[in-house]
Nucleic acid binder design. Structure first.
Lengths: 340, 340
DNA sequence: TTGTAAGCGTTATCAA
DNA sequence: TTGATAACGCTTACAA
């Protein structure tokens, strides 16, 4: 391992000069600096992250918190897509991503402890249970943090325009002739409330009365619960002709309930998803869905987090929240309803 | 931030004693040690990872290399599942996972450089292009490393039993009456060769002549290429009655080609996938597939890597390779072929 | 049993 | 412009 000392020896200068030269700091002659940098390169010098971190209190490590109830956060296509985009942006700025956990070395530690132990410069949170005490603790610790789909006081966050998302879905269904539009939402949470708001207000605007029996609360990504609730909707004396699903993945449960009821999509009943997951484009029938722009979400999150980090120590930034537009992807699962 | 010094002061002992007590090292009185540990706890002490790393040359950081051609490694369900399982095992032993990349701070660095810079204790590789020069460089650097689906000389690796996997698929198809069994493989690579070996040898065993026109080379997870190649198979004067796909995901392309040819699965043609991805269980028809045991693969990888790390500096371990059994998941995509 | 002190590789202050 | 030196928080001989 090549150290500053080695370079100093070879160049016949002091470590201090080498450090200055390599970091492009003032206080070294242009010639000396050049020579130092050249020998450093030729010797294959790389700074030692641990030493730098110890000295500067900056690690350039960002903690990533991606967990769901089954702690399989990495299997959530949507969040992982956001993470990919976030990752690219952060890496451009020299940051590394570290997966967070609560079990460092046999015994359990909290997220906050993990964060402190590793000296993380910031945290990316796209967890689902935002009411987790440990998350609240983390949010209160004053560590730069950005969240997706939830806002903690004092921290920036990024959302899709959920109100508009459901609104687009309802309008689209209505345009194709539907008035009996059911909505199976994810579990209650900020995002879910927004979507419900979009559902109710758009129905109202369109002059369609809201029917309580057309609204069900499922859980995001929960195929079997969504399947059951879809079956329940289908059993109503006057079932909806179009159903909005919590998300594309959970929607698979909806499709399967419809199939098992002996009905066809879209001939007998229309379906709209949410997310715009890549793989849905490859299955039949192609799901009509509300697309969340994961790339933009990830990039926005990176920007906000970087700003927080740069600002650390100074007076608090106003915690900005960015809303990202959504689009409707026309698939094959919505058509004119049959006369009922 | 609480440091050893703070604790030492409070307890009226030296930093050395505190360090020993906290690390359960000999050389401190039982009483003193106990008191020290208690105050450490009450003060909320956490070791400083950077300082420890600097001193001990151990970071407890494992680099994770998950990339495909589109550098969207995290979207590969199969590898991510393996990673999840690997992660859990590693975390139990106190390791953190860091996502590797080649762009630390504007300019590009190699994987090896990233590895050295961050002082990673080991690397987990589940990349696809194993011939990447940077990977070879990394493999030659003597850093503990474990790979999935490929073996580098001197390093341990974990595989599914690919020969048996395809063999199981062929046997199953044959048992249900198929003799015209096509195989669309992934791009040429060790794993692919094994699968092809299983394909050929099993056909032979069953007394089915190998037909070159029934074998096509696609790419893993490539929906559109697999779709095209499936279409090609269907256009043969005497098309296969059952097709083995590169993997479940690419198989979606196969299904869609069959659909577009006006044929039905499984009535007109049978299909078998590979991987056993979770979501395939939720779509219709449920794909019959060869399941790779991602949990076992991840755990095995963790074990092998841990062994390498513990052994570092000592004489090289024999580079062990672990083969994990696969199972066939009966879905709905294989039935008795129609008389052709 | 306890403490002193050196050193890991950096950065940053201050004097030359 | 340069370089000695202290310090970051920790581990570990070694001395007391």
């Amino acid at each position: 391992m090549v150290t500053l000392k080695d370079i100093a020896k070879k160049c016949g200068v002091s470590v201090a000069s080498v450090s200055k030269a390599i970091n492009h700091m003032p206080g070294v002659g242009t010639q000396t600096a050049k020579k130092i940098r050249e020998t450093a390169k030729s010797m294959g010098y790389l700074p030692n992250a641990a030493a730098q971190a110890l000295k500067t209190n900056r690690t350039f490590i960002i903690g990533v918190l991606l967990e769901d109830d089954d702690s399989h956060g990495l299997l959530h296509q949507f969040f992982v897509s956001v993470l990919e985009s976030f990752k690219i942006k952060m890496e451009e700025q020299g940051y590394d991503l570290m997966l967070m956990n609560r079990t460092v070395g046999k015994r359990t530690i909290s997220y906050l402890e993990h964060c402190r132990y590793s000296n993380m410069d910031g945290v990316f949170v796209a967890c689902i249970d935002f009411s987790d005490k440990e998350l609240l603790e983390l949010a209160d610790a004053g560590i730069p943090m950005v969240t997706i789909d939830h806002t903690y006081p004092g921290h920036p966050s990024v959302y899709s325009d959920n109100v508009d998302g459901i609104s687009k879905a309802v309008r689209y269904a209505h345009k194709l002739g539907h008035t009996r539009i059911g909505f199976i939402s994810g579990a209650l949470a900020g995002v879910t409330n927004k979507r419900f708001e979009g559902y109710q207000s758009t129905l109202k605007e369109l002059g369609i009365p809201y029917r309580d029996e057309y609204y069900k609360v499922s859980r995001y990504r929960d195929v079997s619960l969504t399947k059951k609730l879809t079956a329940d909707l289908l059993k109503l004396p006057q079932p909806p002709t179009c159903i909005l699903m919590p998300d594309d993945y959970a929607g698979l449960g909806g499709l399967s309930a419809i199939r098992e009821a002996g009905l066809r999509v879209p001939e007998d009943i229309s379906v709209i998803g949410f997310d715009g997951l890549e793989f849905m484009a490859h299955i039949s029938p192609r799901l009509t869905t509300i697309n969340q722009d994961t790339q933009q979400i990830g990039e926005a999150a990176a920007e906000l987090l970087l700003k927080q980090i740069d600002n650390k120590g100074k007076e608090a930034l106003p915690a900005k929240s960015i809303k990202v537009p959504v689009t409707l992807i026309e698939g094959e699962t919505v058509v004119l309803p049959k006369k009922g």
